[in-house]
């Protein structure tokens, strides 16, 4: 991780650029695909949060957060890639803007953990990344989302937290799936975590 302290020397190469852009597109596709019920319990399952955690767990902190930021930029510019097939700044000004703000931070933190564990202890990858994603879901996505909602809807942070609780459970589940899938991706492409 010595390269992150010297941004000028650690510029993204062409492969990194392609990975960041392709994963931004992957997040977009996962957000706009019709929700489907994987679990069989009837909870509509959009894959947006899964894709964000997957980008982080596969690409690491910097490239993962950049992929999420790029996805947000494309959506904000008006391409209909936000969940529900929407695009433009309206998603930021609605009640859920705090969540959008939380996504790149969440990706950075999960990516930090994922790269470290992939290099030091690959056997524990799935468990450690699942736990990291769960903590980030509650501590970053939950908190920023609730703050955004409480400002916009003029409710207490506690009440906003209450609205969002059902989604936490689903998001923690999505983090686990992202960790399982990312472990398989790392087995197929060991070069993803290679030190440069």
């Amino acid at each position: 991780m010595t390269t992150t302290s010297a941004p000028r020397r650690s510029r993204l190469n062409t492969t990194d650029l392609a990975l960041v852009a392709t994963f931004a597109a992957f997040i977009a596709v996962c957000a706009i695909l019709p929700a489907f019920s994987v679990t069989g319990v009837g909870v509509p399952f959009t894959l947006q949060m899964f894709a964000i955690f997957l980008a982080a767990a596969v690409l690491g902190a910097r490239r993962g957060a950049l992929a999420v930021l790029l996805y947000l930029a494309v959506g904000t510019a008006g391409v209909p890639v936000f969940s529900g097939g929407h695009g433009g700044p309206a998603t930021w000004t609605g009640a859920t803007g705090g969540y959008l703000l939380a996504f790149p931070i969440a990706a950075f933190l999960v990516g930090l953990v994922a790269t470290r564990v992939a290099r030091t202890n690959p056997a524990a990858f799935t468990v450690v990344v699942s736990v990291a994603a769960a903590i980030v879901t509650v501590a970053v996505v939950g908190v920023l989302g609730a703050i955004g909602m409480s400002i916009k809807l003029d409710v207490s942070i506690g009440a906003a937290w209450g609205y969002a609780t059902p989604f936490f459970v689903a998001d923690i589940f999505k983090g686990v799936i992202a960790a399982i899938v990312a472990a398989a991706v790392h087995r197929a492409f060991p070069q993803l975590t290679a030190k440069r």
Binding site: T14, T15, D16, L17, A18, L19, A21, T22, F23, F26, V38, L47, F50, L54, V58, I177, I180, V181, A182, A184, V185, A188, F189, L192
Partner: peptide
């Protein structure tokens, strides 16, 4: 989820390397 998402993710990474 595994049968759906693992091939999708791996093919996405492969496409990224091709693009690179």
């Amino acid at each position: 989820p595994r049968a759906l998402l693992v091939p999708m993710a791996i093919r996405t990474v492969a496409q990224a390397y091709e693009t690179g």
